[in-house]
Amino acid sequence: MLDYRLVQALDAVLTQGGFEKAAQSLYLTQSAVSRRIKQLEAQLGQMVLQRTTPPKATLAGQRLLHHYQQVRQMEAALGLSSADEKQSIRLAMNADSLATWVTEALLLPDHPGVRFDLVVEDQSVGLNRMKQGDVMACICASPEAVNGGAVVALGALRYRAVASPAFIRRYQLDSASPAQLASLPCLVFNEDDQLQHLYLRQYCGELPQHIHYCPSSEGFLKACLAGLGYGLLPELQMQQEFAEGRLVDLSPQLYLDVPLYWHHWQTESPLLQQLREQVQQVATKTLRHL
């Protein structure tokens, strides 16, 4: 049977950023915390902690902490733990949701002490985090629930192909067709990002031939503004740039709607239920209806 005192030590080391501060928070000696971690690893037969500065959880450690946080939330709901005890929620979501709409939903007035651990993954692969048991909930593009999980449709982010006026002048574009764009420099978030590929394939059957990888939502927008390439950006992210003429829609009649879904475990704590309901409320007023 799992000894949660050992898992508590792991949580403290990661939360406090080291063994010394973890020992202080648990009112233990540093050697006692170290022994608990070693005992936990002996019981599991694998490492739970990378001894880096600061320490990092292994995949097994992450799964264990996810389970530990669920247990703590259920205990809090049953009145078995202190109301002042801080709870953590580990979420996976796509970078564009984080950059545009979802942060409003993370404000939980009834739980001011909750800590969020946000994991950024492309909307096409974020569900893998749920399958691995690494996160408590996930926003991604898949409508298929994982085993033991449930899924809620949130809405869609609408993307448009945009570029700066300097980019348009450089390549002598007035109203660019998707076929023209296929050969021009385009921005792609990372190797998992297939939005530009989907857009071109949908409207002209082509694939992008000249790609710049830019794994940052803010950096992606700045690269577009600088004229490094064109890119698929969510309408929500560039309203001001459109209004000021710093970005131009290359094909105003064309767009790409990406559906988003909230995935959660069926054994949902009251805290996660409140978070889900709040995410749904914000999504309803912000995203496109599916």
Rank of each mutant, 00 (worst) to 15 (best):
L173H: 04
D122P: 13
D84S: 07
G231W: 04
D3V: 07
T58R: 11
R129T: 04
V114Q: 06
L195D: 00
Q202Y: 07
A83S: 11
Q172W: 03
L98T: 00
P178Q: 09
M130D: 02
D11N: 15
T53M: 14
L198P: 01
R90K: 15
L107M: 05
L232W: 09
L195E: 02
L184S: 07
A32P: 07
T29A: 09
R246Y: 00
E191N: 11
D110I: 00
M130Y: 05
A105M: 11
G245Q: 06
Q73V: 02
R288D: 04
V125H: 08
R115N: 15
V135L: 08
I37V: 10
P252L: 09
G229C: 12
T15Y: 08
A57E: 10
P259Q: 12
T100S: 09
Q46N: 09
T103Y: 05
R90D: 08
L44M: 14
Y4V: 03
A182H: 03
A137W: 05
S142R: 13
Y261N: 06
S88Q: 14
T15N: 07
R160Q: 15
W265Q: 14
H289I: 04
L154T: 08
L49I: 04
S217T: 10
P165K: 01
P259S: 09
C140E: 01
R129K: 13
S142N: 11
L14H: 07
A141K: 09
N190C: 14
Q237Y: 05
F19T: 06
S251Q: 13
L157I: 14
Q274P: 02
R129D: 05
L154H: 05
L44C: 12
K131G: 06
A182V: 07
W101P: 00
S269Y: 13
S124H: 12
L275Y: 07
S164I: 01
L91D: 03
Q273C: 08
E206F: 08
L154P: 03
E268Y: 00
R158D: 05
P178K: 13
L275D: 09
M130C: 10
Q39M: 12
E75C: 05
Q196S: 14
L26I: 13
R72T: 03
S31H: 08
G229V: 03
L184Y: 12
L49D: 03
R169I: 01
R276V: 14
G219T: 04
L254F: 12
P55H: 11
G229T: 10
Y171S: 12
L290T: 11
L256E: 10
D249K: 04
S216G: 11
